[in-house]
């Protein structure tokens, strides 16, 4: 479980994340939504120990992330950042293998190799595994990053905008994967996402942020109402039920 307690971050006098607290029990997909500049990525960075917090506390399975050593956390928590511009010329298999580093410290055993293979197959990358990353398309590369994070074999996965640069088909495939990671591997996935309809279709719970504060928290049904969405995004949103799914329409 994840406990976020009164988390605050200030940049140049502005509270980018302002007194945010919530609790996430094990299992399931949790989406963080909100307008640009709401503090979603900053919040996720602090929860991933990539950014120091000004005040507050984050506990993962009871471990305070500010006090726990990094290798221990790396076996509980995997993070995929928004920008993954790697200059290194690695093959897909090399990259995914680095996901085993927290467990193997660089010496891959049979168990590690099996996990790598499993992750490659799960993301449908087995045929591409000896290709260099710079020879892949954007969608394939994004899948390779996810495979690396999955291979880290942690109970918690934090993904910052995993749908970046993906077209319709790949975006759907990615969200299905995330769902399967939660369902089949019993993992807890927290992701920052912009598309409210994807969030609605695939999450168990949605956290909405605005101006650094957590403004709404609940299951998709609770968030996907015109009043709540307008409150978050400041534009009118119609919500229609299409094939048993709440869809926000806001394009015109």
């Amino acid at each position: 479980m994840i406990d976020v307690r009164t988390l605050t971050k200030t940049y140049a006098g502005k509270r980018v994340v302002d007194d945010v607290s919530f609790h996430i029990p094990p299992g399931g997909v949790v989406s963080l939504i909100g307008p640009n500049g709401a503090g979603k990525s900053t919040l996720l960075s602090m929860m991933s120990r990539l950014l120091t917090m000004d005040s507050g506390q984050v506990l993962i399975d009871g471990l305070d992330i500010s006090r726990t050593d990094s290798p221990t956390l790396a076996r509980r928590l995997a993070v995929l950042r928004q920008e993954n511009h790697f200059v290194s010329r690695l093959t897909v298999r090399d990259l995914v293998s680095f996901g085993r580093y927290p467990h193997s410290r660089g010496r891959l055993g049979a168990d590690d190799l099996a996990k790598v293979q499993e992750a490659l197959e799960f993301l449908d990358l087995a045929d591409l595994s000896d290709r260099f990353l710079d020879q892949l398309s954007g969608g394939q590369r994004q899948r390779a990053y996810v495979a690396m994070v999955l291979c880290q074999d942690t109970d918690y996965l934090f993904l910052d905008e995993p749908l970046n640069n993906l077209d319709m088909r790949h975006a759907v495939a990615m969200m299905r994967l995330i769902r399967r990671i939660a369902d089949e591997f019993r993992r807890t996935v927290v992701l920052v996402i912009h598309d409210i309809n994807f969030a609605s279709a695939y999450s168990d719970r949605i956290l909405a942020m605005k101006d650094g504060r957590l403004v709404h928290d609940g299951p998709p049904d609770h968030i996907m109402t015109p009043g709540v969405l307008e409150d978050i995004f400041d534009i009118p949103v119609h919500v229609e039920q299409v094939r048993g799914q709440a869809v926000g329409v806001y394009y015109r």
């Binding site: 991933s48 120990r49 290798p71 790396a74 290194s88 927290p102 880290q152």
Partner: peptide, 16 residues
């Protein structure tokens, strides 16, 4: 190699 993937990835993988 891991450091070459950037600070964020390195920290995520538990590397000093």
């Amino acid at each position: 190699s891991i450091v070459g993937l950037g600070r964020d990835v390195a920290i995520t993988l538990g590397l000093n």
